[in-house]
Write a protein that binds this DNA or RNA. Structure first.
Lengths: 339, 339
DNA sequence: AATTGGCACTCGAGGCAACGGAGTGCCAGG
DNA sequence: CCTGGCACTCCGTTGCCTCGAGTGCCAATT
């Protein structure tokens, strides 16, 4: 029962409301957009749209604003992919190509994304489990505490302090370093457990029992509890949307400070090739119920190295945000996949 | 010309205003605090205090609020060191003692500080230059790009990608790793340049010229451009003070996102043994002119390893913030100095 | 000389009514 | 199915008023 013009009206409402943050009325709509019909007709359409739950009135005799369902339809059916402007493309390129370091890449991209969209941006570091091992280094802190440094092919350097059950000496550490590097070099971390399964058998017989427990402990620390990391930028942009949030601002800021929350968020939406949009109540976490999230995965090949996206008010420029997210994800994926 | 009672009045004004965020009048003052005088007398004192610039009126026929100068006097002369409650001490201890990692220590303390003070908290990672080298690891990324991983005695792991002028092979990398570790192990990073000054002389003659340039490049990357890091928490607390900031909120949030700004801030106030308070205009950076900063250094012995503190509205519980900052600094200093 | 009570004055906050305007729903006519 | 007209609703603004907290000043008291 959704005719063409009705969709046009919905799109016009969304676009106007995103710009003005004020309920939009039939007269203004008919004027500002070339709908080719009179305000009265628009009113009929609006009435129908409201009936079907796509728009709503804050109060009688006010204009209409889109509901979550309305935004959803807008995103699904109406917004063409808005290509980025030449200037934006150039900005992305020049912003990211100066990066050397992984840290640098992530920091630059998260700031870039925040700037392009004027929203809060989130970029996840490449997941450890999807990365391959380039080198493992072990440093003795005390005889029962070892510092493991894991360097991946994406340039990520991950450290982990591990408490070992029995004191170790340099000999054992050296042996451990040797066998771990030999076995894991170039392999993906998810494959690590099987790669080291019967590794201690190849070591010097007198060290085997010790090595076996050590390896178990290390694997647990590195594989079972992989530490995911994210970068955040643009929280200042929330002040632009202060009106949209009111009392939900504080819980939102608190949530954004929690790595755990952000990781959960990104984890849910890091499909490659698809820009996922979560609008208001569609979000699984309470603190984000009053926001919209536009996110995607980045990486080369089949599986995503990580995810990135933006968080903002439901009243968001979805086409713009989607385009920016997609573009940045592409650049980041190329940069990190290429190395 | 500052008599005893006048100071009492100022203190009472500051305390009341911090609690209520409303201009405080003579009558309420005389009632709530045991000043032993009538409102009329208080009025006279207030008049004098205003004359001298310690308090001001938002408008005629309103109560008084402290000026920056008033807060300054309050901090300098009036506020005894408020000891932390038993519960707070316990909270600090249990919060920090679970930490294993340096990252863990920093993250926990910054959150703790934010929670205790209900302000934005900043904790600097231990400065590289003040730390000693425990281990240096080198990983070849490409023949002209090396990844240096520096591990310090504070547990900090610092990575740096270095572009070298001429391709290197494994032999040279091994040699470099050997001489660097031998020369720097246990030494402070500030002393590194002289420690390696004529280091290449001791290496195999055929490698010397190459090593010399490499060492120069590395020293530049690690010593001349040491990368300081900070952790931030509690930005959600700014929403509590939204009224105090109004339009300065956005620039403030932007500033807080800039590592550079935070480092400059902490760098200015990281004296050990002294809790520094910067009130409003006393701050050197524009974005902080409407805030107050309470900060100090942490560490063992003479020089500070790093700094930490809180940023909040001028209308701040200074005694409380100072006590919390001092206490957390002490714990963090002990933890990181002890290792 | 310092303190106090009294008094007139000021100014913002809050309540209330009136008004204008934007927007709607409905209906009858093209 | 679209359109113009019309009555109705309700919000936001404006102007007005009152109330109360707070001040400054002065004369009286200790």
């Amino acid at each position: 029962m959704l005719e063409e013009r009705r969709l046009d009206v919905l799109r016009a409402i969304v676009e106007d409301f995103v710009l003005s943050n004020e309920p939009v009325g039939s007269k203004a709509l008919a004027e500002r957009h070339q709908l080719g019909v009179s305000p009265a007709t628009v009113r009929n359409d609006m009435s129908a749209l409201e009936e079907e739950g796509y728009i709503t009135q804050p109060h009688t005799s006010a204009g209409r604003i889109p509901t979550d369902k309305g935004y959803r339809l807008f995103v699904d059916r109406l917004s063409g992919v808005k290509p980025l402007s030449r200037a934006e493309r150039r900005a992305i390129q020049s912003f990211l190509e100066g990066a050397i370091d992984l840290d640098d890449v992530v920091r630059r991209s998260v700031r870039l994304l925040a700037q392009l969209t004027r929203q809060v941006a989130v970029v996840q570091y490449p997941s450890l489990s999807c990365s391959s091992v380039r080198h493992i280094e072990i440093v003795t802190i005390t005889p029962v505490r070892l510092l493991f440094v894991l360097i991946t092919d994406t340039g990520r350097v991950e450290q982990r302090v591990v408490e070992v059950p029995a004191p170790v000496d340099d000999l054992i550490v050296g042996e451990l370093r040797g066998v771990l590097n030999a076995a894991l070099n170039g392999r993906r971390l998810v494959d690590a457990p099987e790669a080291v399964a019967d590794l201690s058998d190849t070591a010097r017989p007198d060290l085997r029992p010790h090595l076996a427990t050590l390896i178990a402990v290390v694997m647990e620390a590195l594989v079972d509890k992989p530490e995911e990391r994210v970068a955040l930028a643009g929280t200042a942009n929330l002040t632009l949307s202060a009106l949209d949030f009111a009392d939900t601002l504080r819980p939102l800021l608190e949530a954004l400070e929690e790595q755990v929350v952000l990781l959960k968020l990104i984890g849910e939406v890091r499909d490659l090739d698809t820009v996922t949009v979560r609008i208001g109540q569609e979000n699984s976490m309470d603190a984000l119920r009053s926001t919209s999230v536009v996110a995607t995965g980045y990486g080369r090949g089949a599986s995503a190295l990580g995810g990135l996206g933006v968080v903002g008010p439901r009243r968001m420029d979805y086409p713009g945000a989607m385009a920016a997210v997609r573009a940045v994800a592409k650049y980041v994926g190329d940069l990190l996949g290429a190395d």
